[in-house]
Simulated scan of single mutants.
Amino acid sequence: MSGLDDAAIYLLTGIQAAGKSTVAQALAERLPRSAHVRGDVFRRFVVGGREEMTPDPSPEALAQLRLRHRLAAQAADAYAAAGFTAVLQDVVLGEMLPYLIEQIHTDPLYVVVLAPRPDVVERREAGRDKKAYGTFTVADLDTGLRGGTARIGLWLDTSDLTVAETADEILARAEPVRSTRDCSRD
Results as ranks from 00 to 15, higher is better:
I152Q: 07
M53Y: 03
D5I: 05
V138K: 05
A164R: 09
R66M: 12
R68Y: 05
G19I: 13
L31I: 06
F136I: 04
A150R: 00
A82R: 06
P116F: 15
L27M: 06
V46F: 04
L12Q: 06
G49A: 06
V163C: 00
D40Q: 09
H36S: 09
G83D: 11
A24N: 02
P55E: 01
L100N: 06
L97S: 07
L154W: 03
S34N: 01
T135L: 11
A78Q: 12
H36N: 13
F45M: 12
L12W: 03
Y110M: 04
A78H: 14
E95L: 08
E102H: 07
A81W: 14
G127M: 15
L11T: 11
A73H: 04
F45C: 07
R50F: 08
D140P: 07
D186H: 13
Q74W: 12
P108L: 14
R38L: 01
A28R: 00
R44V: 02
F136D: 05
L109G: 08
G49P: 12
T54W: 00
T162H: 04
D40F: 02
L114M: 14
T158D: 00
A126T: 09
V46I: 13
G144E: 03
D5V: 03
E169V: 15
R30L: 02
R117N: 07
K130P: 09
A164G: 06
A28Q: 01
T162G: 05
D142S: 10
L88N: 10
A61G: 03
Q25P: 11
V112M: 04
D119R: 02
A126P: 08
E169G: 12
T137V: 08
M96E: 12
P98T: 01
T143K: 15
Y133M: 03
A82G: 14
P57R: 00
D142Q: 10
P118T: 09
V120H: 09
Q89P: 05
I101K: 02
K131A: 00
R146M: 12
G39M: 05
L65W: 08
A61H: 00
V46P: 00
L141W: 09
E169A: 15
L12D: 03
D186N: 13
V47P: 01
R33K: 13
G94C: 01
R33F: 09
A61E: 06
A18S: 14
V120I: 15
A126Q: 13
L100P: 02
A81Q: 10
S58T: 14
R146G: 05
L156A: 07
P55S: 04
P32M: 00
L154I: 11
P59R: 06
